[in-house]
């Protein structure tokens, strides 16, 4: 077998054997009857954002800032829709006061947050907010589940959605930067 063919086959193998946590997560969204997906993009969320845009079951909502998404989730629930908010760690700071809506009215709330500024981070500007993510969320009454391994993403989000929508809980699932992968520059 010549070199270029071997190289090509190896690439195919890598692609087909990579564990696709996004597909599992997508299935969890469907299983839990999630409808609205407000998001601020992040490289770590890019695949799932593309997937929900390509499926008519979902109503993806691109935001200009993360606190918009907090209010969207609450409005959606008033009207009977379940939702999940996607953002990156820097967006947590933008949400602080809007989270008073969630806690004051006991709205069910789940957000998936991709972490920057913690593992092989090139950009030090990401670090201050990243370091404060857990503290910020907990101070505002949001439980925090942190995920380190790709195979734990879907089960953790599934559990968070179950808790939130069975008894009006507020939960953030953090996807570690190691899980997402270092951002290459």
């Amino acid at each position: 077998m010549n070199d270029w063919l071997q190289k090509g086959l190896n690439m195919v193998k890598v692609v087909t054997t990579r564990f696709c946590w996004e597909q599992e997560l997508f299935d969890v969204f469907k299983k839990n009857n999630i409808k609205q997906i407000p998001y601020l993009p992040d490289a770590g969320h890019s695949k799932i954002i593309e997937m929900v845009h390509n499926d008519e079951l979902f109503k993806p909502i691109v935001l200009t800032t993360e606190e918009e998404g907090v209010a969207v989730v609450c409005g959606a629930w008033l009207g009977g829709d379940r939702s999940i908010l996607l953002m990156q760690s820097s967006g947590v700071g933008n949400c602080i006061n809007m989270l008073s809506l969630v806690s004051n009215c006991s709205f069910p709330f789940v957000t998936i947050i991709t972490m920057r500024g913690e593992f092989g981070e090139f950009n030090s500007w990401q670090v201050p907010m990243s370091s404060a993510v857990r503290g910020t969320l907990e101070l505002m009454g949001v439980q925090v589940h942190r995920v380190e391994k790709t195979e734990d993403v879907a089960p953790t989000v599934d559990a968070a959605l179950y808790s939130a929508y069975s008894s009006n809980q507020r939960i953030a699932v953090l996807l570690s930067q190691k899980l997402i992968g270092r951002k290459e520059w």
């Binding site: 409808k35 909502i61 009207g79 809506l101």
Partner: peptide, 25 residues
């Protein structure tokens, strides 16, 4: 009627989530 007593800046976005959930209202 849902009255906001806080969450300043969030009224229009609550309306958006509600309008998408209730397209016939």
């Amino acid at each position: 009627y849902f009255y906001l007593w806080g969450a300043m800046g969030g009224a229009a976005m609550m309306g958006l989530g509600l309008s998408l959930a209730q397209p016939n209202r």
